[in-house]
Nucleic acid binder design. Structure first.
Lengths: 167, 167
DNA sequence: TTTTGTCTATCTAACGTTAGATAGGCGTTG
DNA sequence: CAACGCCTATCTAACGTTAGATAGACAAAA
């Protein structure tokens, strides 16, 4: 994975988090990076491959960030909340997998698998942390929904409001 | 509002709830209804007008359904939960405003206003029903997020799991 | 020499949108 | 009554633009 490929993933992630799967294009991503669209195709031959790669990296990084918070002594629910909160505040964008999940009928199978992986691993990890299934689903749902509301209303404080009850 | 215009709104609503704003097209909607794309333009001159009209009707109907549940004696949180639940089970689709909120950077102002209206009125009504602001945001966030998760994982029981703690 | 990475140039398909024509219904006017 | 003009609703056809994707040239590096 070279520098350009990483820059393409970065740009695609930002675009998808703002406008969803069908709201981003090779041309836009290429312009963000400073190359031609055909160069993006060189690194990621098709749109669904690119989106799937973005989702996989996003999930991996997300889980790693949660692990770090837990290793630093945070409660598992607090850790998940903090990582969601940081993703919202740092980027002022929706959760990547939340943004794509919202248009799930529009996703190629390869992409949907990666989006599902985010949600499934989230629930799984929270259950491994001691939560009942219902509680685990509740945490993920609330975090995604609060991020959604905070984003569309352009009021990040809504995330804190909406998730205060979790901890 | 004649029969065709209503059919166009119905088709557009279903398409947007499955694929988001930029995932639906005049041609698709026209084909669903059984007319040509130019006829859709006759009733709704531009895509953003159509999406805004769909969102307004959706919100109005949603609030009315909640009112009916409350009039029948339901607790306000239970009423909201029931209407979300029915929208998920009946249509097997995302919440229309949730689907568009997820791609909020991609929305024309006219559409975003309508999407925001859904969230703002939801929070407002819950507060009028006696909830604190944090609790109202929590309810809306959890319902949207649970619908999102249930949809993308294609498991409607997740909605009940994820929202059980609300009531 | 082969591989890597980017370019130019192009393709087909689809997009939202518009123009112009048509057909039928409905009043109003001669 | 009949003729005219207007409104509604749809059609065909095309507009310019953008989409994802591909082929082939070219330079640099291994």
């Amino acid at each position: 994975m070279n520098e350009t490929a990483e820059a393409i993933l970065d740009a695609a992630e930002e675009r998808i988090r703002g406008a969803g799967y069908s709201g981003f294009s090779y041309r836009d991503v290429a312009a963000d990076v400073g190359v031609k669209a055909s160069s993006v195709h060189y690194h990621f031959p098709a749109k669904e491959k690119l989106a799937a790669a973005v989702a996989r990296r996003y999930t991996d990084r997300f889980l790693e960030a949660v692990d770090q918070r837990q290793a630093a002594g945070a409660d598992i629910v607090a850790a998940w909340r903090q990582v969601f909160r940081e993703a919202l505040h740092r980027d002022a964008r929706m959760c990547l997998c939340g943004a794509m999940a919202a248009t799930s009928h529009d996703l190629a199978e390869e992409v949907r698998v990666e989006v599902r992986r985010f949600f499934l691993l989230g629930i799984e990890r929270l259950m491994q942390g001691g939560l009942e299934r219902d509680a685990a689903v509740h945490v993920i749902a609330t975090l995604e929904g609060a991020m959604l509301a905070a984003n569309v209303l352009d009021d990040h404080s809504l995330f804190d409001s909406g998730t205060a009850a979790l901890i």
